[in-house]
């Protein structure tokens, strides 16, 4: 039931899963993305860093078309999402989980309802099936004791962990994280990063925009540095952090480390 509702099954490791080619995006006269090319492979953990306004969130959001691009193509598991029908787009989005900076939990639903809503309404799971799945995920993110609470009763870190569980409930092949720890108090950053590290260890394909360089060093297969809407430099974390080539990357790292 659930497997056939997902459009694609888990792709083989190492196969290209997100292909971004020659993508341009403008906000009025501002160029948000300039000729961005990026291929993410299944199972790969990509961390995107860069100063604010560098286009990293825009790039991430255009992967599931929360932002529309002006030129170029983005292909997810072989499907061109920049020129597809709304129905195909909705099916694609089930397969791409997204975690936001501001959590965006549904405040009128309990934690359990937040996690079970999409599987029940979109995948046709029964209440019992969806709750069983949700409970496992809530245990995984360490928050199963709060299943009956409303989001307003939870701390920021707890809310973000629920948001991760909510995205995982659709059993996506790809997870996108848009600065997931930027809105959190410092003491809560760790609990969210722990969940993300666990997810990375399970082999999830992840694209993560973050300012947490420790996290990037620990889990990233590849670090991408963006500035002014362009990918300036990319490589494995040791190379990016220990021997940056481009002066702008060097300057950026000096400022934040």
């Amino acid at each position: 039931m659930t497997e056939e509702s997902n459009i694609k099954t888990q792709p083989a490791k190492g196969e290209p899963i997100i292909e971004i080619s020659q993508v341009w995006k403008f906000f009025g006269s501002l160029t948000a993305l300039q000729d961005v090319n990026l291929t993410v492979h299944a199972g790969e953990r990509v961390v995107i860093i860069g100063p604010s306004g560098s286009g990293k969130s825009t790039l991430l959001r255009s992967i599931n078309r929360l932002e529309t691009i002006d030129q170029g193509t983005i292909t997810i598991q072989g499907q061109d999402i920049s020129h597809c029908r709304p129905h195909e787009l909705n099916l694609m989005r089930r397969n791409v989980g997204m975690v936001f900076q501001q959590f965006n939990l549904f405040p009128h639903k309990t934690v359990m309802q937040n996690v079970t809503m999409a599987p029940r309404k979109l995948l046709g799971l029964t209440k019992a099936e969806a709750e069983e799945r949700a409970l496992k995920l809530l245990q995984k993110v360490g928050i199963s004791d709060k299943a009956a609470a409303y989001p307003a009763m939870l701390s920021g870190g707890q809310q973000q962990r629920v948001a991760i569980a909510r995205a995982l409930a659709m059993q996506p092949n790809i997870m996108l994280f848009d600065e997931p720890t930027s809105a959190l108090d410092p003491e809560m950053v760790g609990e969210v990063l722990d969940v993300m590290v666990g997810l990375a260890e399970d082999g999830m394909t992840m694209c993560c925009v973050t300012h947490e360089m420790g996290f990037a060093k620990m889990v990233a297969d590849r670090v991408i540095f963006m500035d002014h809407g362009q990918i300036i430099e990319q490589g494995n974390p040791e190379r990016i952090f220990n021997s940056p080539r481009h002066p702008r990357l060097r300057q950026f790292l000096e400022q934040i480390l």
């Binding site: 929360l66 989005r93 989980g97 549904f106 999409a118 309404k121 995205a167 659709m170």
Partner: peptide
């Protein structure tokens, strides 16, 4: 953000 969260789940 509420709309974006719902749309990103596939609604």
């Amino acid at each position: 953000g509420q709309t974006e969260a719902a749309r990103s789940l596939g609604f």
